[in-house]
Design a protein around this nucleic acid. Structure first.
Length: 870
RNA sequence: GGGAGCUUAGCUCAGCUGGUUCAGAGCACCUGCCUUACAAGCAGGGGGUCACUGGUUCGAACCCAGUAGCUCCCA
């Protein structure tokens, strides 16, 4: 059979993924085994796969696949969240294309379209994860808005409300005029922008006297109801008790005084617009000045503004500056930089706005559930990297109430019901609400209550995810939740810590009395080579799907995993994927080699020597690597684990072991030797499998004779205990030395060498005699002292090398001299220690012994080198 | 403005309880090779005042203080 020298992953990956699914290899059902559970951070249902997902899900798959091989009952639950703002925006856009305005249809009609949209596009990202090789239990796929998960959300709302942990209040919220909804603080991104500071005169009535106010938002002056200065500011004391006229609207407002005002900033006077600034709002309440909301919910000027009605706020800003200048109210404009909040979803500038919203009282919540903080601080829940505990601690200790209502239709509708006067009850259905209402307000005349128009924040669904995916609310004692909860590991990005990680911990303790997971692995952010975050708008994010088509999912996974320690950003570059592809190809060619060997049953000398020596050497390396890889996994150091495997396969297996086992050209290999080679290869594939699931499956399957036993069901490799390492390193160093000397002197690799080694112990060299001859192209090795040829050292052994037909031009002494110089310096530093009284007094005895040994070694080495020099 | 973290080779990063198995890895780079598994390869090689300045110590990349620069979080 002819196997191509280039590995082509595409068909192989498609073939295996289909087989895995057909054979339900990722299915998990509770049984007697130890469970290992991961719930996927549900990707946004509107999303398509980007590099961040690739990294995040590769990591999860690596963890899950290894756990499965360790004999655990591994369960990776996939799913998506309903992403209310993003999805609603998509649906609104889709309707617009059809010529339908959201305003013109009913809520139910809109939801009909939304579900239609979800059914059509909502599964795309999950299909893409399959290309990546993700071993999710697809039969468990959940969606945050499916009936049972929605019911859990509503029940939790009602429950928290009854416990007094949820309240409705008037608050200044972050208003997104594009999404037309309130956002939580976490959904606002502050960016530094170039702004202007406008200096505006507010005249005292019937006077030329005026107060100068500096503001970046002149359009809000239509809502001004006071101006405020610091009471200690001498400049403004004369205005005590006076009023001023707000320009344009000609409203007379009081001059008030408060310590809050910074006399140093701007002119030392603030205009007070309680409806549109949180600080103004607080001052407004304190000084009892009214509030005028001069904006509509889409960011245009409202009727209440009185002027520029219907114009957009930014257009008004320009216009009002012009108008103020014309009327002589504008003193000057000054360029400044300030921070402005933007909506994470719509990128619209956030408008602070007062509105009635539902909140979770976080202070109370934390008082009930101190474990939310404690469990992380005492490592019951471990963060990787642990430095992120600080951030968590800081956020939890300074936590703010959580605004959970959103002015949207796509989401779980808030189960609150109002009568005409605004009296409120919270209940699951209208019927229950009415009953409750009649009892609570002792009013049986009212037969109709109106449900709150708003829906709940998407995170108010996802925070229940580790419980709700196992139906832990609907059926709290069911087999799944009892078996899989608490889950093991959560893999997510650091920016999700507050949105999700913290809140899952909160819900876990409140509703299960237990943590939701034991480990949180924070991935980095995927950036481009210039450290810019990959984003659609920058266009610097490669499309993962064609990339996987071209290089293979394995290569992409490898490329991402090689350079992404926990918590570190990954600077993605296609060259990393190339490295992954090259690695696949390397493995593929080793496979070609092994599969191409003819076998014999005649035991040759070659087999008996190499079979033992090479095998023993390789087994030793494999044992060591398995231990290291396991240690790295235990510490979630996945890229280090991969690197150990990479070097084990490329360097130890391909460059050394296979070269040793390879029979002389044209000869067959002994069938027992081939069995050994295949055994090693097969174990290597098992080690590699979590990282590169496809090629490891393909090759293992080939090595075992296409029996389709599935690597995913095989055991994670274990150390073979009775391997006694034999001392070979000198022989390997000798090979390197001989190759080196050739290189240094420009001698062709084809020129054979004649080597003399002067040593006390020839056994190590003798056992690898043929290996050395083959790998270093040596004609003959003897063990007598020779004065001819190039000189070198292998540890304490002197080596002389001649190359047949090559004339040595001059004595090769510089290398030796360098070595002597280095050792002399080294010796000196050791002697300094050993003659230092304090060192001798303080250092541990075994350290002193070590130093003495080093001294002796160095001395004897120097001696030998001097002799060589002559 | 408040808090946290980082600074080690050209790049991305390891470096545990201080002690020449500690100055490392991968990539990139340079040299020589189309050696019959693999040029997506083989054999070699050169790169670092461990940000800076002090201190502690017999001994510091590692501990302490200060300085500079960068990043993130919160306001």
């Amino acid at each position: 059979m002819e196997i191509s020298s280039k590995y082509s992953p595409k068909d192989i990956e498609t073939k295996w993924y289909k087989e895995w699914l057909d054979n339900k290899l990722f299915r998990s059902i509770p049984d007697h085994r130890e469970p290992y559970t991961i719930v996927i951070p549900p990707p946004n249902v509107t999303g398509v796969l980007h590099m961040g997902h690739m990294l995040n899900n590769t990591i999860q798959d690596v963890l899950v696949r290894r756990a499965r091989m360790l004999g655990k009952n591994a369960c990776w639950v996939p799913g998506t969240d309903h992403a209310s703002i993003a999805t609603e925006a998509k649906v609104v856009a889709m309707l617009k294309e059809k010529g339908i305005e959201k305003k013109s249809i009913s809520r139910d009609e809109f939801l009909g379209y939304a579900w239609e949209w979800k059914e059509k596009y909502g599964g795309i990202i999950l299909e893409q994860l399959k290309k990546l090789g993700c071993s999710c239990d697809w039969d468990r796929t959940r969606f945050t808005m499916e009936p049972s998960l929605s019911e859990a959300v509503i029940d939790v709302f009602i429950d928290l409300h009854s416990k007094g942990l949820i309240y409705r209040g008037s608050r200044m919220v972050n208003w997104d005029p594009a999404g037309k909804t309130a956002l939580s603080d976490e959904e606002v991104i502050y960016k530094e922008v170039d702004s202007k500071l406008y200096y505006i005169k507010y005249f005292v009535p019937d006077s030329d006297e005026y107060i100068m106010v500096a503001t970046t938002r002149p359009e809000t002056l239509l809502g001004d109801t006071a101006v405020c200065a610091n009471p200690n500011d001498e400049r403004y004391k004369k205005f005590i008790g006076k009023t001023v006229i707000v320009p344009i609207v000609n409203r007379e407002v009081p001059v008030i005084f408060d310590e809050y005002v910074d006399a140093e900033f701007g002119t030392g006077v603030l205009k007070i617009t309680p409806a549109h600034d949180i600080n103004d709002y607080n001052l407004g309440i304190k000084h009892n000045v009214p509030s005028i909301d001069c904006f509509n919910d889409d960011g245009t000027m409202s009727e209440a503004a009185g002027f520029y009605i219907g114009m957009d706020r930014f257009a008004v800003r320009k216009q009002i500056a012009k108008d103020l200048a014309e009327s002589g109210h504008l003193e000057k404009e000054e360029a400044i930089k300030n921070k402005v909040g933007y909506s994470e979803r719509t990128d619209a500038v956030i408008e602070p706005r007062i509105s009635k919203q539902w909140f979770v009282d976080m202070k109370k919540y934390m008082a009930r559930n101190p474990e939310v903080l404690d469990s992380v601080m005492n490592d019951e829940i471990q963060f990787y990297p642990s430095k992120l505990k600080n951030t968590y601690n800081h956020w939890i200790t300074n936590i703010k109430d959580w605004c959970i209502s959103r002015q949207l239709w796509w989401g779980q509708r808030i189960p609150a019901w109002y009568d005409e006067q605004g009296n409120t009850v919270v209940a699951k259905t209208h019927e229950e609400a009415l009953e409750l209402y009649q009892k609570q307000f002792n009013n049986s005349a009212v037969k109709q209550l109106n449900q709150d128009e708003d829906v709940l924040d998407t995170w108010f669904s996802s925070w229940l995810w580790p419980i709700s995916v196992f139906d832990g609310f609907k059926d709290p004692d069911n087999a799944d939740i009892n078996y899989y909860y608490p889950t093991n590991d959560l893999v997510t990005a650091p920016e999700i810590m507050f949105f999700w990680v913290a809140r899952m911990i909160m819900s876990g303790y409140e509703y299960k009395g237990q943590k939701p997971f034991s480990n949180v692995y924070y991935t980095g952010i995927v950036r481009d080579k210039l450290r810019r975050k990959m984003s659609k708008s920058l266009g610097n994010s490669p499309d993962p799907l064609p990339m996987m088509d071209e290089y293979g999912a394995d290569a992409v996974r490898m490329g991402m995993m090689l350079c992404s320690p926990a918590g570190n950003d990954i600077l993605f570059d296609i060259s990393q994927v190339e490295q992954g592809r090259n690695f696949s190809n390397k493995i593929w060619n080793a496979y070609r080699l092994v599969m191409g060997w003819e076998t014999t049953q005649t035991a040759t000398e070659y087999y008996s020597i190499y079979g033992f020596v090479a095998q023993n050497w390789m087994e030793t390396k494999l044992n060591k690597a398995i231990i290291e890889v396991n240690e790295h996994f235990d510490k979630f150091r996945l890229s280090d684990a991969l690197m150990v495997i990479y070097k084990l396969i490329w360097d130890d297996f391909c460059s050394w072991y296979l070269e040793m086992m390879k029979p002389p050209y044209g000869d067959p290999i002994h069938d027992k030797a081939l069995v050994q080679v295949k055994s090693v290869f097969e174990r290597l594939m098992r080690l590699l499998h979590p990282f590169m699931p496809f090629i490891s499956e393909e090759i293992r399957d080939g090595l075992l004779g296409n029996i389709h036993s599935y690597i995913n069901k095989s055991k994670w490799p274990e150390c073979i205990p009775d391997i006694k390492p034999v001392f070979y390193e000198n022989s390997f160093e000798l090979i390197t030395l001989i190759r080196n000397k050739r290189n240094e002197n420009g001698i062709s690799p084809k020129t054979p060498a004649i080597v003399s080694v002067s040593t006390d112990d020839t056994s190590g060299y003798k056992s690898l005699y043929d290996v050395i001859r083959k790998l270093a192209n040596v004609e003959v090795i003897d063990f007598i002292k020779s004065s001819k040829g190039l000189k070198g050292m292998v540890n304490k052994d002197e080596v002389s090398i001649e190359y047949i037909g090559w004339e040595m031009k001059q004595a090769d002494s510089s290398e030796l001299q360098k070595e002597i110089d280095y050792l002399t310096g080294f010796l000196k530093s050791i002697e300094a220690k050993l003659t230092n009284e304090k060192f001798m007094a303080n250092a541990k005895p075994d350290l002193i012994d070590k130093e003495r040994q080093k001294k002796a070694d160095a001395e004897s080495k120097i001696e030998t080198l001097r002799q060589q020099l002559g």
